[in-house]
Amino acid sequence: MRMDKLVKVGMADLNTAKVPQTIRTSGLGSCIGVVVYDERLKLSAMAHIMLPDSTYARSGVINRAKYADTAVADLIGLLEADGALRSRLKAKIAGGAQMFQFSSSNEAMRIGPRNAEAVKDVLASFRVELVHEDTGGGSGRTIEFNPATSVLNIRTVNKGVVEV
């Protein structure tokens, strides 16, 4: 089976990538890109989450990739199904920006920081070590993870590229 070299993850979406693939999601604003990986098997899984918790859902059938709690659980499940060991899993996260500064301090406007908190809580509850976090601020981010090196590449419009 031919594999695409680059796996793309859309908004409210998740997917997996293994060597020699890389996995990428673009245009994270208040959303969080979370990558969970097994360094030894060089397996990775990424989600682009929009909301902190699946209790926000208003319809019966939910898209599990959209919420921090269900998305992280699914990433771990997918990696374990491929042979990854829970105790070896690590995570890197980016996003959760406040794209707009408002004069009024409406709680709904703080969705970015709340997403970041939620993702960290869920990772902790699964005992997945958070190796790097690039959250908050006011800039959109595009991220790409390479399971061969466990390096996460983070690009912003104004500050160029950093590798973590």
């Binding site: 604003g29 959303c31 969705i111 959109g140």
Partner: peptide, 15 residues
Amino acid sequence: LAVDMAMAVLSFGLI
């Protein structure tokens, strides 16, 4: 106001 990637600014309005 924001000056940034289209998806990053539009996603906020989709919450």
